[in-house]
């Protein structure tokens, strides 16, 4: 019998174990460990270039990254054996740090295709109702239905649309890569409310952010600090506040110290 079930701790939805990955022959992830249990919210912070987006991309299955070692398990399955489409259909969602424009493809058309791809085809009328409600929730004007996906959108509009996609596609695990960056105060609240709605529905969240501010709206269960392609420090919500005042040198010094101890 499963030990974890016995103790009442749910089996992880995502397990990243000793993950190493590179791009164009350049190692970026140097042994990432991260365990996310169903319904948990994990925040990942860390310097520019420390590998946060790389981790999100590798979990989603971006073909440009090469996994050099370690493993990723999703609901107990070997994620590395699944392609991007399979991962999406199994319930993994990535909100892109830099959402991609799809010229010539209308937002409504795109969303309907995505729903269909997920096996959730809805009649046209119902879809329009759903979409209109989702637009309203995220403060997106209805006129966006016929605009081309992310084409000429402002930074904030793109981020709202990412969250709208998450809410519509109803994933089990959402990787939100700096979805809070570049948002004005109102947009931040709207987007945070969207994320909280997903969390309330049981979605597990990995939230990559540079700012303590979003964490005032979306309460993380765990906070991790990335350093040179690894999780250098983990803690509770208080870690985000400490980081804000003490900066990343503190984490760096601490990491060096703990390495010295373990050596």
């Amino acid at each position: 019998m499963n030990h974890e079930t016995n103790t009442g701790v749910a089996a992880p939805i995502l397990e990243v174990l000793g993950l190493r990955a590179s791009i164009s022959g350049k190692p970026i992830l140097n042994g990432v460990d991260l365990v996310v249990r169903p319904g948990e919210v994990h925040a990942i912070m860390g310097r520019n270039g420390s590998g946060k987006s790389t981790l999100s991309n590798v979990v989603m299955g971006h073909p440009a990254y090469v996994v050099d070692g370690g493993e990723i398990r999703y609901q107990g399955r070997d994620l590395l054996r699944m392609d991007v489409t399979e991962r999406a259909r199994a319930g993994i969602f990535l909100a892109f740090q830099y959402p991609v424009a799809i010229p010539g493809v209308g937002v409504a058309q795109f969303l309907r295709s995505a729903l269909r791809a997920m096996g959730r085809e809805v009649p046209a009328r119902e879809f329009r109702k759903q979409l209109s409600a989702a637009f309203a929730d995220l403060g997106i004007p209805d006129s966006f239905a016929t605009r081309h996906v992310n084409d000429g959108f402002s930074g904030g509009e793109k981020k709202r649309l990412e969250i709208l996609q998450m809410l519509l596609l109803q994933p089990k695990l959402a990787l939100l890569d700096e979805t809070d960056s570049g948002l004005d105060i109102d947009a931040l609240r709207t987007v945070a409310a969207g994320i909280n709605r997903a969390i309330a529905q049981g979605v597990s969240v990995v939230l990559v952010t540079h700012y303590q501010r979003i964490l005032e709206y979306v309460r993380p269960d765990h906070v991790h600090v990335f350093l040179d392609g690894r999780v250098a420090m983990s803690g509770g919500p208080e870690l985000a506040t400490q980081l804000e005042s003490r900066g990343y040198e503190w984490v760096e010094a601490d990491a060096v110290a703990s390495q010295a101890v373990s050596a």
């Binding site: 073909p63 392609d83 991007v84 991609v100 799809i102 791809a117």
Partner: peptide, 16 residues
Amino acid sequence: EEAVFFLRSRGLTRSD
């Protein structure tokens, strides 16, 4: 290819 990755991450197959 970034756009292909984006669309696949929304459940579309490569050919779709």
